[in-house]
Computed example of a mutant assay.
Amino acid sequence: MTAPVAPATPAVAASVFGDRLGLAERYAGILATRGVEWGLIGPREVGRLWDRHLLNSVAVASAIPAGVRVVDVGSGAGLPGIPLALARPDLSVTLLEPLLRRATFLTEAVDELGLGDRVRVVRGRAMGPDARDAMAHHDSYDAVTSRAVAPLPRLLDWCAPLLASSGVIVALKGASAADEVTDARAELKRYRLRASAESVSPYPGADPTWLVVCTR
């Protein structure tokens, strides 16, 4: 078992994760050890796992409705999908990851955290509805999330086909979020989506981060 890693800001973390703070600490421990060993987290990131990764990931929660099915595209080490699932126990979350090593890591993490009743790992790719690739994932979700996966024009080609008719795409982005929305005008029109770049504070006292929120 991986030992928990206590947050640097325990009061803030407790306000975000509530009675699941212990699970968040265990997940941070998994990232700080196996995540580094497997090359999913850089060694220099260990000291800022909470502020930069776990708590920052929860920024997407503000744009996701209650009780819906969510897919985290290109989940990697489980960011933002696992922190989102911990902060929002009302959600059913699918972690979609094409690479075997990362999917194995995610499966082990979900099992160790006891989240298997509402978090599943799918080894597959987000692709268009007509894709014939054996790993193409074609389910439909109420919300699609991503973090540091691709520029918005390319990301929409992957995420929009997974979106239910009234769903929402929520992408964690940097300060160039508004420019990405402009660059994705053709894709937004193709998928009949409206997009906005929104500055949000993922937790009290945090520096603002940016979301691109796309709806039909």
Score class of each variant (00 low, 15 high):
residue 181 V to H: 04
residue 159 C to D: 15
residue 110 V to S: 11
residue 122 V to N: 10
residue 185 R to S: 15
residue 108 E to V: 13
residue 89 P to C: 12
residue 86 L to V: 06
residue 116 G to M: 02
residue 149 V to T: 03
residue 90 D to H: 05
residue 198 E to Q: 10
residue 89 P to M: 14
residue 199 S to A: 15
residue 105 F to V: 09
residue 120 R to F: 01
residue 169 I to S: 09
residue 146 S to G: 06
residue 102 R to P: 05
residue 187 E to P: 04
residue 100 L to S: 11
residue 141 Y to W: 08
residue 142 D to P: 03
residue 198 E to Y: 00
residue 153 P to G: 12
residue 121 V to K: 06
residue 159 C to K: 04
residue 108 E to W: 06
residue 142 D to Q: 12
residue 194 R to T: 15
residue 167 G to V: 12
residue 113 L to G: 12
residue 121 V to N: 02
residue 181 V to P: 03
residue 105 F to D: 07
residue 135 M to R: 14
residue 186 A to W: 10
residue 117 D to V: 06
residue 162 L to K: 09
residue 162 L to G: 11
residue 124 G to S: 07
residue 93 V to A: 09
residue 177 A to F: 08
residue 164 A to F: 02
residue 83 P to L: 01
residue 131 A to Y: 06
residue 134 A to G: 08
residue 93 V to H: 03
residue 110 V to W: 09
residue 92 S to C: 08
residue 93 V to R: 06
residue 194 R to A: 14
residue 157 D to F: 14
residue 159 C to V: 10
residue 194 R to M: 10
residue 185 R to K: 14
residue 124 G to W: 03
residue 199 S to G: 11
residue 160 A to C: 11
residue 102 R to L: 07
residue 195 A to N: 11
residue 187 E to R: 05
residue 182 T to D: 12
residue 169 I to H: 05
residue 123 R to D: 00
residue 149 V to L: 15
residue 165 S to R: 15
residue 169 I to T: 07
residue 111 D to M: 05
residue 177 A to Y: 07
residue 127 M to C: 13
residue 165 S to D: 15
residue 152 L to D: 03
residue 83 P to M: 08
residue 149 V to I: 09
residue 160 A to T: 09
residue 114 G to Q: 12
residue 140 S to Y: 00
residue 90 D to C: 06
residue 137 H to C: 03
residue 164 A to W: 03
residue 197 A to E: 06
residue 110 V to N: 10
residue 138 H to T: 13
residue 143 A to R: 04
residue 125 R to T: 00
residue 118 R to L: 13
residue 116 G to F: 02
residue 95 L to A: 14
residue 196 S to W: 00
residue 91 L to T: 09
residue 150 A to H: 05
residue 188 L to P: 10
residue 104 T to A: 13
residue 108 E to G: 13
residue 196 S to I: 11
residue 178 A to D: 15
residue 88 R to Q: 02
residue 168 V to C: 09
residue 111 D to T: 11
residue 197 A to P: 01
residue 84 L to M: 13
residue 198 E to P: 00
residue 175 A to Q: 12
residue 192 R to A: 15
residue 181 V to D: 04
residue 200 V to A: 05
residue 151 P to Y: 03
residue 173 K to E: 12
residue 118 R to C: 11
residue 156 L to V: 02
residue 108 E to M: 12
residue 132 R to H: 08
residue 85 A to H: 03
residue 141 Y to R: 05
residue 183 D to C: 14
residue 165 S to H: 14
residue 200 V to C: 01
residue 192 R to H: 15
residue 158 W to Q: 14
residue 173 K to Y: 07
residue 170 V to S: 13
residue 88 R to G: 02
residue 162 L to Q: 10
